[in-house]
Structure formats: structure tokens, C-alpha cells
Amino acid sequence: MDKLKINIVIAGRTYPLSVRNTQEEEGMRKAANAINNLISRYEQNYAVSDKQDVLAMCALQFASKLEISSLAKSSENTEAINKIKELTNLVNTHLK
């Protein structure tokens, strides 16, 4: 399958990319849009003159959201496993 060639603009710079399909293209464009919106908010709310600083702040925010989400899922999985163990123990107790 041929890859699609697209251009993504982040912080005023154009980045040529290759994507596998239109769904991946849409994801890339939405991600770039979210980054650009966050850049605008940081520039409006903070006295940041260097784009690199703003991009670093954006990267930190997006990465921390992923990590927090991962930690929450891990916690949910642990809770589910514990509940399954409790139920298994109850069933085993009643079968004896």
C-alpha cells in the first residue's frame, strides 16, 4: 500500500510526513491542531518569547496526560484483578 504524503504545520513550521491511511492523516492533523491551540494558549497566558520553551511545555503537558491516563488504567486493572481474586475465593469457598 502506498503511503500518503501530507504536510503538517506546527508552530508555523511545515513538516512533511508519510501516513498509511486517511485515518492516520486525520489523527495527525487533529494532534497538530491540538498542539497549535496549546501553543497559542501558552503564548497568551505566559511571557514566553522562545518557541522552543513553548513546545517543551506542550510536550510535557501531552506526555503527562498520557502517563496519568496510563497510571489510572493500571490502577483500574489492579482493582479489577483484586475483585476477580475475591470472587474466585468466594466461589472456591462455596464449592468446598
Rank of each mutant, 00 (worst) to 15 (best):
3 K>F: 08
4 L>N: 03
5 K>T: 13
6 I>F: 02
7 N>C: 04
8 I>Q: 05
8 I>K: 08
12 G>P: 00
12 G>N: 06
12 G>H: 07
14 T>K: 02
14 T>D: 02
14 T>M: 01
14 T>N: 03
15 Y>K: 02
16 P>Y: 07
16 P>F: 06
16 P>A: 03
16 P>Q: 06
17 L>C: 10
17 L>V: 06
19 V>G: 05
22 T>K: 13
23 Q>M: 09
25 E>T: 04
25 E>D: 01
25 E>S: 05
25 E>I: 01
26 E>L: 11
28 M>H: 12
29 R>F: 07
31 A>H: 11
32 A>H: 03
33 N>G: 04
39 I>L: 10
39 I>G: 02
39 I>H: 05
41 R>C: 03
42 Y>Q: 03
42 Y>K: 06
45 N>E: 15
46 Y>G: 03
46 Y>H: 15
47 A>Q: 14
47 A>N: 13
48 V>D: 06
49 S>D: 12
50 D>R: 14
50 D>I: 14
51 K>N: 08
52 Q>K: 13
55 L>N: 00
56 A>G: 01
57 M>Q: 05
59 A>P: 02
59 A>R: 05
60 L>N: 03
61 Q>S: 06
61 Q>C: 02
61 Q>W: 05
63 A>C: 05
64 S>A: 09
65 K>L: 14
67 E>L: 14
69 S>P: 00
70 S>P: 00
70 S>L: 12
72 A>M: 11
72 A>Y: 09
72 A>H: 12
72 A>G: 01
73 K>A: 05
73 K>V: 08
73 K>N: 06
77 N>R: 05
77 N>D: 13
77 N>S: 07
77 N>G: 00
78 T>R: 15
79 E>K: 13
79 E>W: 01
80 A>Q: 10
80 A>I: 11
81 I>S: 08
81 I>V: 11
82 N>Q: 08
83 K>L: 13
84 I>E: 02
84 I>T: 10
85 K>T: 12
86 E>L: 07
86 E>V: 03
87 L>Y: 12
87 L>T: 05
88 T>W: 12
90 L>G: 06
91 V>E: 04
92 N>V: 09
92 N>F: 07
93 T>A: 10
93 T>H: 15
93 T>C: 04
93 T>M: 13
94 H>L: 15
95 L>A: 07
95 L>E: 12
